[in-house]
Every structure is written in structure tokens, then in C-alpha cells.
Amino acid sequence: MSATHLDIYLRHALSTASGPVLMDVALPLEAGTITALTGPSGAGKTTLLRLIAGLIRPQNGRITVDGKIWLDTGQRIFVPPQVRQAGMVFQDYALFPHLTVRQNIAFGLDKGDDPARVDELLQAVELTQLAQQKPHQLSGGQQQRVALARALVRRPRVLLLDEPLSALDRSMRQRLQDFILKLHQQYALTILLVTHDLAEIFRLADRVVELDNGKITRMGTPEAVFAGAHPFSEGPALYGEVISCRTEGEYVLIQALIDQRIHKFRLPAGQAAELLPGRSFLLRYSVDSPIVEVIR
């Protein structure tokens, strides 16, 4: 199965906490990529996913998927969500409480579909042992994996993930990111993922789209969007979050979380001025000294 390319153009009135806002978005999703969708709450991220899935009708818009039209308000074409082949993972997972894990995943099968697909997905998310449990008997991370498997059962052309990992703790998050990456490769998926977590964006996404007030404000690779084009931007970069900083003479001793571990390093005071606790940064290797770029 080859990956799917989507072209999305949408104009839709949003009602937000701060009044009505017109969403106006033109966005390609390259075949087989993971695109992160980020931005402040109320920017229209979830609405965008729901528009793509066909759960809401936009006033104006056009969505083509490998050249096939899902939506074209000009031609009055609206392919209903049932036929769209968009896998959706909801923020609250939306697992059916009265069905077991297996039944939840099998729910999406049509009559005559091979039930072996369910076993395959159970295996892919490592839940074969828990197939007979009900959702409320599972941990948050396990529920999340059921939701992922269920969204894949109909072999969707695009997988839409709405802040799938926001409710999970750090280690669980990392494990699920591994699952997403694995499924992404295994099924050649095109993925659009809503997230606020910079670490997640850098870890998962090929591209990032920032949405604010219904408009795309920035779009590009995570590094280009969050670090800006930098003359030294070749070579590896580590993403980290500042935990504490202490001035020691001309240097600042910084404690930071990099790749799930606490690291300490010293920087010249001039370079560390913006590295306050809670800030995120990219740490690059360079010939003379490390270069630190504060994100936003």
C-alpha cells in the first residue's frame, strides 16, 4: 500500500471564546509524512481535523486525496465521514465503553472483512493479552493504543490524531511515540497530529504547521519553524527543556531535560540569558562551543 497525498483548502467560520473567527487554511499533506499541527487553544486545530474527517461541513472548501475529491463546496460534493477513509484518534479516545478491546477494534470492519486484521492490529499495539478487557479496565496508555489500532482497522488513507498523548506521563508518552512511528512505517501512513509538546514535534514530525486564529502562521520543518534558519544549522541538534539555572561568575550552570534525562552543562552568561526555567531550546554541536537556540 502506498501512502496518500492530501490537498486541503478550507474556509470556515469558527466560534471561539474571543468571538467569531474565519478559518482560512490551505495545506498540503505530503504522502507518507507526519505533520504536526500546533498553536494556541481555540486556534481551530481540532476543527481542522474534524473538517478533514467529514464530521463537520465547511462553508467553503476543497479536499482532494490522491486526486479523488472528498469535498468540493463549489461542486456541492461532500463525501460523508463513513466513506472517507480517515482514521481518527480523539482526544478522549472515544472508545466504546460497552465493548471489549477486540470488539472496539473490530467495530470498524465491514461485513465480509477478514477478522484477521483485528489480530494483526492487536499484535501491532501489543494488546493481544488484553483483548477481552473493557476500556475502563485499561490504563491511559493502553486505551490510547486501542484507539490507535481501531483507527487503523479500515486501512485509512490518512490518520488524524487529536492531542493523542497529552494525558499521559512522560515515559508512557515516549513509548506511544514509538508506537506511532512504528505504525507509520508499517502501514505507510500519512499522519496529521495535533500537539502542543515541542519534544513530540521534534521527535515525530517531518513538518509542522502552526495555526493561530484560524490562519496558518508558520509552516515548515520543526527546526526551520522553531529555530529559524541558522547558519550553523547543519549537524545534529538536541531538543531540551530548562529545569533550573544558576549563575556562577561568568558562567551559568544549567540543568536541563534532554532526551528524557537530566543533564548539567555550563554556558557563558551572555549565551544563557534567555535560558530560563521552562524554556525549550535546541542544543547544537559546533567546532568551538555548543550553540544554544532558545525556541520562541
Binding site: A53, Q82, F90, A94, G108, V153
Partner: peptide, 15 residues
């Protein structure tokens, strides 16, 4: 009931 239950069912192909 959460709206997402209905929407999940729709996006899983159910009427």
C-alpha cells in the same frame, strides 16, 4: 454521551 462516540462510529463507517 460524549460527541466523540458518535463521531468515532461515523468515521468507522457506521450509519
Amino acid at each position: 454521551l460524549p460527541v466523540s462516540l458518535r463521531e468515532a462510529s461515523y468515521s468507522l463507517g457506521k450509519s
